[in-house]
Computed example of a mutant assay.
Amino acid sequence: MNPASLIPLAEPLPVHWVWFDVLLITTLTAHLLFMNALLGSAVIGLSKNLRGQGTIIREVGMKLPPLLALTINMGVAPLLFLQVNYGHFDYVSSVLMGGWWLAVIAALMFSYYGFYIYKFKYEAMSNATRTALFAASILGLFYVGWMFTNNMTIMLQPDIWLKYFETSGAFLNWSDPAIYPRFLHFMTGALAIGGLFVALLGQVRTNTDMIETGMMWFTRATLVNLAVGIWFLAALPQDILLAFMGRNIPATATLVISVAAAVFMLVAGFKKEPKKASVWAVITVFFMVCTRHWLRTLYIAPWFSIESTPVTGRYGSFYLFLGFLIVGLAAVAYMLKLYFNSRQERS
């Protein structure tokens, strides 16, 4: 069977595909920043707690329920924009994963309620119970990350879709040599951004230990992640690796810029400047997302080109979307202003 026959036809787009790619990259950057702060800070808090230092896990634990809610909400937009331009790949990979993919919802709910119970029933539980619940909630997040990594790699390789007919049905992408460094690259990055989040929280709390701990995790995880990134790059198919080594100028440029930004981020980290490191972290994550976008484009190039998707030119719904987006952002900014003003009045 020809794998190309399994790829559904792309639906016509109402506006130019560039708009959806830009929105996908922008919203995914925001989602990853929240996800990294959530998962990384949780792991750091658990690590310190297992060493008998429970201050950080308590401080972080208070922030995890709203962080997880924000992570989920921020993740909806990029998933929708992905499905607009590349849904005929993403929908197929989701179906091929079957129950593994559907279980993501249960894992998220488990982690969500686990962190909520930790926050509001902290005093009523023993330290062992609290630690076990916290660790189980983190494992739920790792499961979600692993499933997303599988989904995003299966969608890129229609040639492996044939496994569905050769096995008992749903499958995961265990045989892909690039999936392991890909997953570790995201998880190690989460530890780095999580450390930065702990340091920023320490600045707000004027807690020197949190700042020191956070920046230590930030710098060390970033250094490890540079090595994991090299592994990830080396594990890619040769034609894609060569594209990032100069054959594709835009793809190479985004990779070089993201690495350069990571170096500046590291310098700020070693100087223990959390705010400056945060600025460079946002820039680094943005260009890493751009690099990831090029990786997707290069993977599916033999099967599909987004430029070939028909465009109807009906901009009405798009203008309506932009209008609601602007009004929504203004409303959120106003609510945040009221929230911070009320906190200043209480203090």
Results as ranks from 00 to 15, higher is better:
Met288Ile: 03
Leu191Ile: 03
Leu226Tyr: 12
Gln203Gly: 13
Ile257Tyr: 09
Thr26Val: 13
Gly316Glu: 08
Ala192Ile: 02
Thr149Glu: 14
Leu68Ile: 06
Thr188Trp: 08
Ala251Ser: 07
Asp159Met: 11
Ile160Phe: 05
Trp161His: 06
Gly202His: 06
Tyr91Ser: 09
Tyr339Leu: 13
Leu139Arg: 08
Val263Trp: 10
Ala199Asp: 03
Ala136Leu: 15
Leu241Trp: 09
Leu336Tyr: 00
Gly246Tyr: 04
Lys275Cys: 03
Lys119Ala: 11
Leu236Ile: 02
Lys63Val: 04
Ala135Pro: 00
Gly214Pro: 08
Trp101Asn: 12
Phe244His: 04
Cys290Gly: 03
Asn36His: 12
Leu242Trp: 08
Met1Pro: 10
Ala235Val: 02
Thr26Trp: 09
Ala268Tyr: 08
Asp159Glu: 15
Val289Tyr: 04
Ser278His: 03
Trp101Lys: 12
Ala281His: 01
Val267Pro: 01
Pro3Tyr: 02
Ala178Asn: 11
Ile179Ala: 04
Phe142Glu: 07
Leu329Thr: 00
Ile193Ser: 14
Met35Thr: 11
Gly202Ala: 02
Lys276Asp: 01
Val22Asp: 05
Lys276Thr: 14
Leu133Arg: 14
Ile57Lys: 14
His88Gly: 07
Trp231Ala: 02
Ala260Pro: 00
Tyr113Met: 10
Ile25Gly: 07
Asn225Phe: 01
Trp161Tyr: 05
Leu50Tyr: 12
Arg343Cys: 04
Val282Arg: 00
Phe165Ile: 05
Lys163Phe: 11
